[in-house]
């Protein structure tokens, strides 16, 4: 019974993460995208925390806390400032229509389900579900990176992808702390570097539109 509840809650939370990913896919404005991303991080934090509780692995609470603090609060706020300063928060920047994006997203989720459930037949059901959802989030994140034209939204998409990774790591029973640290570490570095880049890019281009960057692409022969 206890096991069933554990499973249901974990399932719900992981599914929630996928749902929020879809919501991100649905956003057309940067500011709302950031808000949804914050929600994404919150769900992630909850999910990780639940895993920590279920697995009896207290170090996962740290991960959850980091996710909550960093991704749900600090980063969205910082990015929001940037987009306000740049005046691009209303920008519509998808490559193809929302409907199509949702459809493709569905396909990706189906793919990861089909793949993961079949592959992880020997793992615990909890881990299976978790992993399947994580893969969905990762793929959705990747797709979002591909379908957004704006650098900020690409960064957000990338972070949602990382959220999926953390979900997977947390779902893997007894995965050593090393991984969480490294994830946090990489996110940190990633953010710093991106910050530096954005700063420099802004310095030069007055826009964070990746297309402007593209105009300097290597050589054109």
């Amino acid at each position: 019974m206890q096991h069933g509840l554990n499973y249901d809650v974990a399932h719900m939370l992981a599914g929630g993460l996928v749902l929020v990913s879809f919501m991100m896919l649905y956003q057309v404005r940067l500011s709302s995208l950031l808000r949804v991303f914050a929600a994404h991080a919150v769900v992630l934090a909850l999910s990780v925390a639940w895993q920590a509780y279920v697995q009896g692995a207290p170090h996962l609470f740290v991960t959850a806390a980091i996710a909550l603090l960093f991704k749900a609060l600090v980063i969205p706020v910082a990015l929001n400032r940037i987009i306000v300063r740049l005046g691009i928060y209303r920008e519509i920047e998808t490559v193809f229509g929302i409907g199509l994006a949702m459809l493709v997203g569905m396909g990706l989720v189906a793919l990861s389900m089909a793949l993961m459930l079949r592959v992880t037949a020997e793992a615990t059901p909890l881990a299976r579900e978790d992993l399947a959802f994580a893969l969905s989030v990762v793929l959705l994140g990747l797709m979002m990176m591909v379908t957004r034209r704006n650098a900020v939204s690409q960064v957000v998409a990338f972070m949602s992808l990382e959220n999926g990774l953390i979900l997977a790591a947390a779902g893997a029973q007894g995965m050593p702390l090393v991984v969480e640290i490294s994830v946090a570490f990489s996110v940190l570095i990633a953010f710093i570097v991106i910050g530096i880049f954005l700063f420099r890019i802004r310095e030069r281009f007055d826009t964070v539109n990746v297309q402007a960057l593209d105009s300097f692409r290597g050589e054109r022969s």
């Binding site: 893969l135 990762v138 992808l161 997977a168 893997a172 995965m175 991984v179 994830v183």
Partner: peptide, 11 residues
Amino acid sequence: VGIALALFGTI
């Protein structure tokens, strides 16, 4: 992106 995929593989 490579980092992320590799991590997923590692997991």
